[in-house]
Amino acid sequence: MSNYEGKIISCKDICFAYDGMPVLSHISFDVMDGECLAFMGPNGCGKSTLFKIINGLAFPELGTYQFKGKSIDRKTLDDATFAKVFHQQVGFIFQNSDLQLFCSNVREELEFGPVQMGLAKEDIERRVGDVAAMLSLESLLDRAPYHLSGGEKKRVAIGCILTMNPQVLILDEPLAGLDEQSQKWLLGFLQSLKKSGKTIIFATHDRDLANSLADRILTIDSNHRLLGEMH
C-alpha cells in the first residue's frame, strides 16, 4: 500500500443508488490511523451500504474511496492478491453474527483466517488461544456456533476477525441483540482495542455507545447526506 499520511480511509463525494433509488448522496469523510469513528442515522439512511463500500463489497457510482492512499474499486479488487491483503487489513463484523459463522465449531471459526494466511501451526494455535482467552471462548471452542447464545455468537464473530489481526475493524450495529451485561463487556473490549491503536468504525443507534467510544460521530440523515460531525 502506498504512502497515505495517516489517512487510512478517505471517501470523497460518494454516491450510491439501488435501482435508481439513492442510498448515499455525496458522502465525504476521512478516517485517521487509530481513530474511532461512529456513524449514526435512521434506519435506511445508508450506513450499512457505506460499510459495504468500505469493505469493497459494493462500489460507489460516483466519488472515490481510498484505503491507505490506494483507490478501491472493481478494478483494483479484481487483483486477487491485493483483494486478499485488503480483506486481511479491513475486518468486518456483521450486525447478525449468525450469518458470519459457517464452520462446524468455534475453534475452526477462529482458525479459518490464520490457516488461510499460511501461518505456522504454533502461530495459529497461539492466535486462537489468545483470542479465545481474550473473549472468554475457551469453554466454547468445541461447540457448534449455531448452538451458542446471541452474545456468545457475537464474541465468536469478533474473535474470528481478530485472529486475522486486521488494522481496521468495522462493526455494523455492534450492540444489536445483546443483553445489558454483554453490551457493557463489548464496550469495554472495544475501548481496549481502540487503546491498542486499532482503527474502529461502527454504526449504532446508541448515543451512549457513540459518545463513550468514538473520537468523532458522523450522522447521515434520511436524505442519505452527511449532516455533520460531533467530537
Binding site: 492466535r127 481474550m134 472468554s136 457493557k184 463487556w185 464496550l187 469495554g188
Partner: peptide, 18 residues
C-alpha cells in the same frame, strides 16, 4: 488476557492484547 463478560466491567477495566 481474560476479560470475563459475566463480570461487570468499568470503563477502566481493559483487556490486555497479545
Amino acid at each position: 488476557l481474560k476479560m470475563d463478560p459475566d463480570r461487570e466491567n468499568s470503563a477502566g477495566d481493559f483487556v490486555l492484547l497479545p
